[in-house]
Design a protein around this nucleic acid. Structure first.
Lengths: 232, 232
DNA sequence: CAAATAGTGTCTTTAAGACACTATGAT
DNA sequence: ATCATAGTGTCTTAAAGACACTATTTG
């Protein structure tokens, strides 16, 4: 019974999100070759010899951003296996991974010299990415939005030290909403193991300096952050 | 740059859950061949010619249970790509899908004549499944538990008509907890588009007959069903 | 002082959960 | 009548959200 036991090529694609100037942005590379030459695409690469897909994704992440995949957590977004998703040839199946990064100084030029840059997600979605990367990006952003509700992952968007205001801006950028400052402050500082004060303060150009925090030990966020409902 | 562009074999595995006699159960097949001959495994099969993985999963579902995949919704659980997960040969990568089914009369003998049967999830987890199917099953069950909180998918465990008590038993079986009957009743009937009364009643051997409902139009469940927290 | 941003107090509304109570059937 | 299961009322507590208010800085 070896009927149609087909072999395929596997890739791992990365959706690396960060916040730049208060705008949710994604790391994209410009394609050098056909198909989709000159179009923007998610960074990614082929599965190699003895790797799992997670390892492929971690390796690509290091190559594209210089970030240690051990520090950052990769989460599976999903598998994309439509037979014609790669026009070159059938049967290139990809698994997408989500990574959340602090605001990096600049995307490290990939070791493979591709021009990588941060693009606001809203812009990327309208511009039209290569392959089915529009769909992948949309799924990944939706996953990130959900993770913000139930996990403490928002701190991954921040540096090692941050203010509650910084954290609030993360939620506002990813969710695309405005949040009540006083209630947000209370909720975050009350949640167990979400943030812990470092004792330091960050002066502001004009106004009271904000206390600094670092990420706490918890991964799950209880009670969850409630995302404002639109339709209601 | 064709370095190590490896080809792999892809399969889709199915975690088909149902509730039998109040116990969360999974459809398993007994393996006829090595490796893991005689052991229980998740049903699944190889990706064919022009299929997407979703289609492979849907086809397997039809073969194993006779259920129309159009009626049932398949959800991706995840990709499992550890290099040595199939001892026969490296690079068999699988994508697992979750399907939720009403209590079927009996597993339709698969068209490929494998002995398929329902096994309580607790039993399957301890028995030790073939390959990494223990892990896949655990992930799928965790996904199902989460879906019960935020979606109206619990009705998929029931037939076309069901009582609120039936629905409560679904939650209790999947979550492994007891729920307050009066509060559950109110919450379910108040939630918009979760269940709609059919007007019928189901007599009970001893006691007041229960009103019958069918699944409503909503897919998202707001407010969500709150899953009792353990540690607190 | 005013302006600006950080953070606290407190009230209202909503939902969760406990549980007493009523309703409707079989025997 | 009793027993059993279905379903409602109501009270308590916890959390969401609005928003007035206080605190701490710069100019």
């Amino acid at each position: 019974m070896s009927r149609a036991r087909q072999t395929v090529t596997l890739t791992a694609d990365l959706v690396i999100l960060t916040i730049r100037d208060g705008v949710l942005s994604v790391l994209l590379v410009e394609r050098e070759n056909e198909p989709f030459q000159g179009r923007l695409a998610l960074p990614g690469g082929f599965l190699r010899g003895d790797e799992s897909l997670e390892r492929t994704a971690a390796r690509e992440l290091a190559e594209e951003t210089g970030l240690d995949a051990g520090a950052l957590r990769l989460r599976q977004v999903g598998v994309y296996s439509a037979p014609d998703r790669d026009p070159r040839r059938p049967r290139v199946v990809t698994c997408a991974y989500l990574a959340i990064a602090p605001d990096l100084p600049v995307p490290v030029a990939g070791s493979d010299a591709r021009a990588a840059r941060w693009v606001p997600v809203a812009e990327a979605a309208t511009a039209g990415l290569a392959f089915d990367h529009d769909l992948i990006l949309a799924d990944a952003v939706e996953l990130a939005r959900t993770l913000l509700q139930f996990s403490t992952i928002a701190t991954a968007f921040c540096g090692p030290e941050f203010t509650i205001g910084d954290l609030r801006e993360v939620y506002e950028a990813v969710w695309g909403v405005g949040l009540d400052k006083p209630n947000f402050h209370r909720k975050v500082t009350d949640a167990d193991g979400f943030v812990v004060p470092t004792g330091g303060k960050r002066p502001s150009p004009s106004g009271r300096p904000a206390a600094l925090y670092r990420a706490g030990g918890a991964t799950e966020l209880v009670p969850p952050m409630t995302r404002p409902r639109l339709g209601t």
